[in-house]
């Protein structure tokens, strides 16, 4: 009786199987790669803003403290963006005719707010509170990166849940004494592990089990 399958059919079948398995594996790699790529996370990409505000100039070169503009960071959940009034405290006196600042002046004159593009954003079901993080010793640059060096503001970290959990499980490496929270150039000292442990006790920070309760961030 004649064979139904030619001798090469085995090879074809094996090729197909390996191709499908390989394809699935490749697809997983591609999807994973895309999901963590800057296309999705927007890390390092500075979106176009109504005014090309430079943190490097204001915070780095001029040394203006973060809290001059982001006033809610020590007391409320949202650090907030400055009202146009805050920009005009200086720019009504310096660079008063600069074309780059025309939208700011127009906003103030016509009482129309500026529409800034949000750089640091978490999903709506995540309820992040700045005040408690600042109070417990987490500094601005820990999450927002080297703002002092950013000519245009970009996101420094992907803010994926696993990234937040890494610190919530073990906060010690990221804690600073109160005076260093707004220090843009803080680096953890060599004995950070011990200092961190002391800060956890001093700031009454809960253990990892309680800090990773879902109700800490999700409501």
């Amino acid at each position: 009786m004649r064979q139904l399958f030619a001798p090469g059919a085995d090879a074809v079948l094996r090729l197909f199987i390996f191709a499908i398995i390989g394809g699935l594996f490749l697809a997983a790699l591609v999807v994973g790669g895309v999901a963590h790529s800057t296309y999705v996370t927007q890390v390092g990409i500075a979106p176009e803003q109504p005014v090309p505000f430079s943190h490097k100039h204001h915070s780095g070169e001029l040394g203006i403290d973060c809290r001059y503009c982001h006033t809610g960071v020590e007391t409320t959940a949202s650090a907030g963006l400055p009202p146009t009034q805050t920009c005009m405290t200086c720019h009504s006196q310096i660079w008063t005719g600069a074309p780059m600042l025309a939208p700011v002046r127009a906003s103030f004159a016509t009482n129309t707010p500026l529409h800034w593009v949000r750089v640091n954003r978490v999903p709506d079901y995540v309820y992040f509170n700045h005040a408690i993080h600042i109070a417990k010793g987490v500094g601005c640059t820990t999450c927002h990166g080297d703002i002092d060096g950013m000519q245009l503001t970009a996101r420094a970290n992907a803010f994926e849940m696993v990234w937040c959990l890494t610190c919530h499980r073990n906060p010690a490496p990221n804690l600073r004494p109160a005076g260093q929270v707004f220090n843009m150039h803080w680096q953890p000292p060599p004995d950070q592990a011990a200092r961190g442990a002391t800060l956890i006790r001093a700031n009454h920070i809960r253990g990892a089990a309680a800090l990773t309760d879902c109700s800490i961030c999700h409501r």
Binding site: G72, T76, S78, G80, P82, P83, Q85, P113, R118
Partner: peptide
Amino acid sequence: PRDQEVPPVNQAQGADPAT
């Protein structure tokens, strides 16, 4: 619209939008 952040032009003391 959630990708934008729109602060007020003048913000009175104690009237911050999150409180």
